[in-house]
């Protein structure tokens, strides 16, 4: 009985605090399609991980699995040292700590912009209403849509809506933010205003998982690029290394197609 395996076991049982999100041998099937195949991924506190890859490679599913909007078949997902709960109140509590921004914004159309942002803190955190509204207004100012607070989401442009959605997620003071193709539904001229907000967040040290097709953002903001294809993580690298000198043929092929124009 040497001490080495014991030490290793201890390390496995309680991952060091800087590992915020840990996916361990995660598998998922949609019917016959094996969308996530033995995914191992660790995201450290304060790290910005950009997930790229062709359509249908499983990158959105991976992102949605982290707060269990998609269930997984086997493997484990741990957030801040705690395994993802199955259902119910525990899961809701965990989701409150994980911000999510969707491709289609998903703002609540029957509530004003300010109410959209203040809803979570009031209903989930039990925050005082006027305090929550003040903080919501400050967040809206921060993402540059403070003057739209009294409007309904349908009255805003796509870029403004997505910035409100980011403010709504930030209002919960999440430990990590998940972005599921946040700019894919936007007109080209509105993409930058959203990316700028995300850049700013990254600079402020927010832990972020970003599924995107914006290679410029990946290059400038990511600490690490994860390249997925056919349900597998094919390559994981520093962005400069990945874009300038990809190792796998699959990544070379992908990059040649998107960077050709």
């Amino acid at each position: 009985m040497s001490e080495v395996p014991l030490a290793k076991e201890a390390a496995d049982a309680a991952p060091p605090a800087e590992d915020l999100v840990v996916l361990d041998k995660v598998n998922k099937h949609f019917g016959a399609l094996h969308v996530l195949q033995d995914i191992n991924l660790t995201i450290k506190r304060g790290e910005v991980v950009v997930v790229i890859g062709p359509s249908g490679s499983g990158k959105s599913t991976l992102c949605r699995a982290i707060n269990r909007l998609e269930t997984i078949d086997d493997g484990s997902i741990t957030i801040d040292g705690r395994p993802l709960p199955e259902e119910g109140r525990e899961l809701a509590r965990l989701r409150a700590d994980v911000g999510m921004v969707f491709q289609s914004f998903n703002l609540f159309p029957h509530r004003t912009v300010l109410d959209n942002v203040a809803l979570g803190p009031i209903k989930v955190r039990g925050q005082d209403k006027s305090l929550a509204r003040t903080r919501a207004q400050a967040l809206l100012d921060r993402v540059g849509v403070g003057n739209q607070a009294g409007k309904y989401p349908a009255q805003l442009s796509g870029g403004q809506q997505q910035r409100v959605a980011i403010a709504r997620a930030l209002a919960m003071e999440p430990k990590v933010m998940l972005f599921d193709e946040p700019t894919s539904a936007l007109d080209p001229e509105m993409i930058n205003e959203v990316l700028e907000v995300m850049q700013q967040l990254a600079r402020e040290g927010m832990t972020m998982v970003v599924v995107t097709h914006e290679m410029g953002f990946a290059r400038s903001a990511a600490n690490r690029v994860v390249f997925m294809a056919d349900g597998r993580i094919v390559e994981e690298a520093d962005p400069h290394q990945f874009f300038d000198n990809p190792r796998s043929d699959r990544a070379k092929d992908f990059l040649s197609k998107i960077l050709a124009h």
Partner: peptide, 22 residues
């Protein structure tokens, strides 16, 4: 849209809250 319930759940709202508020 399904995204409405997803966004509400992602905020940490319970099933009853998702139903009655959103």
């Amino acid at each position: 849209p399904v995204g409405q319930a997803e966004a509400a759940r992602a905020l940490g709202l319970s099933f009853t809250q998702v139903l009655t508020l959103i």
